[in-house]
Amino acid sequence: MISSRLYYASMMLFWVCYLSLLAMVVAYAPQGGISVAGLTLFNDSGLVETALVAMNAIGLSPVSQSVVFGLLGGSSAASAGLLLFSGLFYVFGEEREQREARPLAHGAIACTAAAAALTTLVFLAGGQTGALLALELGALGGLFLTVMSLTQSGIEPDAVSSEEGNALNQVIADHAANHAAFSAQLASLSRHGARP
């Protein structure tokens, strides 16, 4: 089961980085990038250029375009956050936390699906196809397959819980044995007392 945890941790880390970068591209590329420590990041708008063309073809105003890009970036960032917590719960948690990791991963899929649906709607309505659409659909497909593989894998039972369960079973068995012995002695005394 250690290998399944490591596999899930590596896959979730990959998707967290992917979705975080995608959110930053969608948020900063339409604005001409961002300057950090003398470096200009996400300056090339090639990934969002076709999206801008599609939105202009639809007739969206610059404010509406900013809202669409904000929704796309927010969905990707939310998905990355949910995946991060899901990975932490699954890798470092016990049985209960591992179970709680699954709804978080499914929530991440829902956020990615919403972003992919919005991107597809914009591109289809604008009569365009582009790299952003491919990235969103790739994220949705890959994340879906990764989370489904998590759903297929089993949950590790807690070592402490199984030991406590064994101890409880032993206490119940001892109690039942003592009760049976007491009942047998009582029945034997009753038979001896009933004899003339």
Rank of each mutant, 00 (worst) to 15 (best):
F123W: 03
A131F: 09
L6E: 09
A131N: 07
G165W: 05
S162L: 13
E156V: 08
S45R: 10
E94R: 09
Q98R: 14
A78F: 05
A159S: 07
I2V: 10
C17R: 15
F85Q: 13
S45Y: 05
I155V: 05
G59K: 05
V63P: 03
N169I: 10
C111Q: 14
S162V: 13
Y90V: 04
I155C: 00
S188H: 10
T129L: 04
Q65L: 09
S76Q: 14
N166C: 01
N178C: 04
I2T: 14
E100F: 05
Q170G: 10
P30K: 11
V36D: 03
T129E: 06
F14A: 07
S4W: 11
G154L: 01
N166F: 04
S76L: 13
L47K: 13
R99D: 01
A37D: 14
L47I: 14
H192S: 04
I2A: 14
N166W: 05
A23D: 10
S64Y: 14
V91W: 08
G59I: 05
A184L: 12
L71K: 12
L137R: 12
N169A: 15
M148T: 06
N178P: 01
E156K: 11
G165A: 11
N178S: 10
P196W: 08
R99Y: 02
G87W: 08
Q185R: 11
A167W: 06
G193T: 10
M55I: 00
L143M: 02
N43Y: 05
V122D: 00
A27W: 12
A117T: 13
G87M: 14
M11V: 15
A9Q: 13
E95S: 12
L132K: 06
A159I: 02
T151Q: 07
Y90K: 11
P196R: 12
A57H: 07
